[in-house]
Nucleic acid binder design. Structure first.
Lengths: 197, 197
DNA sequence: ATCGAAGAGCAACAAATTGTTCTATAGTGG
DNA sequence: CCACTATAGAACAATTTGTTGCTCTTCGAT
C-alpha cells in the first residue's frame, strides 16, 4: 500500500478536473470528454484514460467538484426573519454566481439515469435543507414559531421556489420576488407579535 | 405555395418523432440522433437529414412532443380543497406516468443553453400555472380566500414543491406528502370557517 | 391514364471521435 | 544511484456524423 500519493497523479487529476468543470459550465456535459480535456489542458489522452477509464466516472467527478465548492454555514442569531433572509440570499446568489448554479440542471438531467449523479445532488440538497432547518430550529428554541406545519415542510417550500423559478419555470430571481418570498415564509412560520410567549 | 402537405412527408415526420420521443424517454437526449432514429424506424438517414438538417431542431421537436401530450383542464366546482386536490393529483401523477415526467429533466438541462428548449418548458409551465390559478380564481369568486399573499405566489409554491422533490431533491411524491402539501396550501389560502362572508 | 415534381431509399465518402495499445521519456522515492 | 510509476506521443481499428449523387416510388395536377 502506498503511503503517499505521487504528486504527479494529484497534479494531473486536479488540473484535469479544473478543466472539466470549466467545460461543463461552458459547453455542457456532452462536451466533457477525454478528448476535450486533453485539448484544453495539454494532458495526453492516454493519461486521462488511465485516470478515468470510464467517461461516466469522469463526468461524475466534475459534478462532484461543482457541488462541493459552495458551502456556507447558517447564522442563527435571530430573529428568524433576519437569519432566513441572509441564508436564502446566499442560496439564491449562489444559483446565479457559482459553478453549481450553472451546472445544476445538467446534474439533474444526469440523475435521471445515473445513480452516482443522483447521490451527488441528493447529498448537496440534504446539506442545503439542513442549513435552512438549522435556522428554523434556532427560531423554535427562541419560541418564535407557531405550529402551522412541520418545519421540514416549510423548509422545502422555502428552497423549492427559487429552484423552480430559475430552472423549471424560467422566471427571474429578482429582489421583489425574493422579499415577498422570504416574507411569506416568515409570516407562515412565526407567531404574530402579540401572541409571543 | 403547396396547399396540402405531402402525406409521405407527414407520415415520415410523425413516425420519426414517435421514435425520437421513445428514445428520449429510454436513453436520454444524447441518444436522439439521426442515426438512432434511422435504426429503430427503418427511415433512411439521408431522409432524416433532409427533414432535420440540424440535430438541435430534431431534439427540440422531440421535446415539444413530450410537452404537448399531457393537457388537462381544471375543474372549478369548489370548494378549493377539492378542486386543488384533484388538479394537483393530476399534475403529480403526470410527473410519474407521462412522457413529460420522464423527459422534463432533459428539457431542463437543454434549456440552460438552448433557447428553443427554454421556450418549450416556459410555455408548458405557463399553462400549468394558469390551470392552478384558475382553481384559485374560482375560490376567490366564492369568497373562500383570505388575503395572505398574491394568488400567483401561492400557486408557485403549490407547483414548485412537487417538481423540487422529484427532480432536484430526489424525494418521493407519496400520499402522505401529497396530503400534507395540499392541506397546507389550502390552510394558507382560505379563511377559517368562522370568518367566511 | 399520364407525366412532371418531390420524397424516400441506398451506397459511398471524408472527417472527426473514441477507445486501446505500445514505446520512449521523465519525475519520484528509497 | 536505482527501481518504480506517471506521462507523452504515435499508431490503430471501429464508430459516428454529415454530405452527396443516384435510383426508385409516390403524389397530384392535367
Amino acid at each position: 500500500m502506498t503511503r503517499t500519493e505521487d504528486p504527479r497523479l494529484i497534479a494531473t487529476r486536479e488540473h484535469a478536473l479544473d478543466a472539466a468543470l470549466e467545460i461543463l459550465k461552458d459547453e455542457g456535459v456532452l462536451a466533457v470528454t477525454h478528448g476535450s480535456i486533453s485539448n484544453t489542458t495539454g494532458i495526453s489522452r492516454s493519461t486521462l484514460y488511465r485516470h478515468w477509464p470510464k467517461l461516466e466516472k469522469l463526468r461524475n467527478d466534475a459534478f462532484l467538484r461543482a457541488a462541493t465548492s459552495p458551502n456556507f454555514a447558517p447564522e442563527t442569531d435571530g430573529p428568524l426573519r433576519a437569519d432566513l433572509a441572509r441564508l436564502m440570499g446566499n442560496l439564491v446568489t449562489a444559483l446565479s454566481e457559482t459553478a453549481w448554479g450553472q451546472v445544476a440542471p445538467q446534474v439533474i438531467a444526469a440523475a435521471a439515469t445515473d445513480q452516482q449523479a443522483r447521490l451527488v445532488i441528493n447529498d448537496f440538497m440534504k446539506a442545503r435543507i439542513a442549513s435552512v432547518e438549522a435556522v428554523f430550529a434556532a427560531a423554535e428554541e427562541r419560541g418564535e414559531l407557531r405550529d402551522i406545519a412541520p418545519v421540514r415542510q416549510l423548509v422545502e417550500m422555502a428552497i423549492a421556489v427559487p429552484y423552480f423559478r430559475k430552472y423549471i419555470a424560467g422566471l427571474p430571481l429578482d429582489r421583489d420576488w425574493f422579499d415577498a418570498h422570504v416574507d411569506l415564509i416568515c409570516r407562515l412560520a412565526t407567531k404574530a407579535p402579540e401572541e409571543r410567549d
